[in-house]
Simulated assay, not measured.
Amino acid sequence: MKTSKPVLVAVGLIALGLVGFALYLQHVKGQMPCPLCVIQRYMFILLALVCFIFAALPRGATKAGASLGALAALGGAGVAGWHVWVKAHPSVSCGIDPLETALNRYPTAELLPFVFKADGLCSAEYPNILGLSNPQWSLIWFLTFALVMIWAALRRSR
């Protein structure tokens, strides 16, 4: 592989696929997204956009794109980590609070409410997927993406 462009495209596609899976869980399985879930969706989409934009730019820009992608992934990991903590402490909730109200007023939430409207509670219990909760899976994916992006930013072009 001469550049990191295929890595950027792959990460972008997987990130969008994860948002698609979240929409499946929401609309088919009835798992309503909480404010932290919606922020994680924004972070996956931001990561995908960064990856696609920098993959389309000249070869020298891919390292910068991978660096920005790593920052987006680490930001998403922070949100997912907080969500995992909230789920582990049921007395804490981000339910109907200013965060939800603010998120639901964003133009994206008004234009695409089926993707970006927060209707659920962060402490809601849904069935685990392969033994892990949705926020735990998000955290794993964000950390994996961060490691891949850091590797792509630091590797030498051949």
Rank of each mutant, 00 (worst) to 15 (best):
H27Y: 06
Q136Y: 07
F116C: 00
L13D: 11
L18W: 07
S4K: 15
V50E: 03
P6Q: 14
F54D: 02
R59K: 10
N134P: 01
R41T: 04
C34T: 02
S157E: 08
Y106Q: 09
L57Y: 13
G30V: 13
E125W: 15
F21L: 08
F145Q: 00
A64Y: 03
E100P: 00
N134R: 10
N134L: 12
A72Q: 03
K87G: 14
R156I: 09
I129H: 08
L36V: 12
L112G: 07
E110I: 14
D119C: 09
Y126K: 09
R155L: 05
V84N: 10
S133K: 09
P127T: 04
P6N: 13
S67V: 07
G131R: 11
G20L: 09
Y24Q: 03
I39N: 09
I140L: 14
C122V: 08
A10H: 13
V28R: 04
L13V: 11
F145A: 01
L121W: 13
V28F: 15
P135G: 06
A80H: 02
Q136H: 02
L16P: 04
L112C: 11
L36K: 03
L47M: 11
Q40H: 10
C34Q: 02
M43N: 14
M43A: 15
F21V: 04
A66H: 01
S4T: 14
P90E: 14
A146G: 08
S91V: 11
G60Y: 01
E100W: 02
S91P: 08
A22G: 12
M32I: 01
G95Y: 05
W85P: 12
L47Y: 04
G20E: 03
L111A: 15
Q31D: 05
V7S: 14
R156M: 09
R155E: 03
Y24R: 03
L49Y: 06
D97G: 05
K87M: 15
A15I: 04
L36G: 07
A124G: 12
K117D: 01
W141V: 00
P35E: 02
A22P: 02
L23H: 02
C122D: 13
V28G: 01
F142S: 00
E110Q: 15
L147W: 05
A66C: 11
M149D: 02
L147A: 13
L57V: 06
L112F: 15
A77P: 07
S157F: 07
K87H: 15
C94H: 05
K117L: 01
Y24L: 09
V115N: 00
M1K: 11
L23K: 01
G12W: 09
L68I: 08
C37E: 08
L49Q: 10
W85D: 13
F114W: 07
G76R: 00
A15E: 05
